[in-house]
């Protein structure tokens, strides 16, 4: 089913649920381990490399959101699937803003859970494959290293990119000069089922402009094509 054994860490305080998820993941050919509180989850995620983290939002000691934020701050960009009992849009947005890739509300359907795991791993695989062929990007005096998620902007400042920022940049950079629709970006970066809103894409583009444009108000590399999407022009303003 899967080309290689993906390692998945499940951080869920409910033992029965955690065990059930791990067993099903193993049955699908993944390698799965479980941890039952946020602090141990953070320690485990930092100690070993994983392909996916499944995080409950409400965890003892350290919440799933705090765990995810902390990982991102440490430069660990492993994809995260959040599980939560609360499914309102506000919580979903908070999860995605904390660096999560997907959000599943309890109680969930087993097939849907496995589908989402597969989709995230597929996107992550695509990213790693794309990065393997072209690991860095140079445009307008900026330099991006997709492997380390680090970038140096035209003014000499260094930046840590989130996994989402790097993926959006990678998707745009793959098709320079072409218009890429917002929905297309959402599908490529978040997946079909997860759409937060096209507004989320706009926010990420704004962030990329702040990092890499000399004049973010009048962007030259990340231009908006009204009503359609965005275009990436690496050569523009290559001063």
């Amino acid at each position: 089913m899967t080309p290689r054994t993906h390692r998945i860490l499940v951080v869920e305080d409910d033992l029965s649920l955690a065990r059930g998820m791990a067993e099903n993941l193993r049955a699908e050919g993944y390698s799965a381990e479980t941890v039952h509180d946020g602090e141990n989850g953070l320690a485990r995620a930092r100690a070993a490399e994983h392909d996916l983290l499944v995080l409950d939002v409400m965890l003892p000691r350290l919440s799933g959101l705090e765990l995810c934020t902390s990982l991102r701050q440490h430069g660990i960009n492993t994809p995260v699937l959040f599980l939560t009992a609360r499914g309102d849009p506000h919580d979903r947005v908070r999860g995605l803003e904390a660096g999560g890739d997907d959000y599943l509300t309890k109680p969930f359907n087993l097939d849907e859970f496995l589908l989402r795991v597969r989709a995230i791993l597929r996107r992550w695989e695509w990213y790693r494959g794309a990065v393997a062929s072209t690991g860095s990007l140079r445009f307008g005096g900026n330099e991006v290293d997709f492997r380390s998620f680090r970038a140096k902007s035209w003014d000499g400042r260094s930046h840590e990119l989130t996994e989402k920022e790097a993926t959006i940049l990678k998707v745009l950079a793959e098709r320079p000069g072409e218009v890429i629709g917002r929905d297309d970006l959402l599908e490529r970066v978040w997946g079909e089922e997860v759409y937060p809103s096209t507004r989320t894409v706009d926010n990420f583009i704004l962030r990329l402009r702040k990092l890499f444009e000399r004049e973010p108000q009048t962007p030259r590399h990340f231009t908006t094509v009204r009503g359609v999407g965005y275009r990436f022009d690496p050569e523009s303003n290559a001063s």
Binding site: M21, N24, P107, F108, L110
Partner: peptide
């Protein structure tokens, strides 16, 4: 509501997962 949604939905999720595992596996 916040507590009950967590405390009810977690065992419900576990229950559903076990039942669906039963059917699927």
């Amino acid at each position: 509501l916040a507590l009950v949604s967590h405390q009810f939905k977690t065992p419900l999720a576990s229950l559903r997962l076990s039942a669906e595992t039963f059917v699927k596996r």
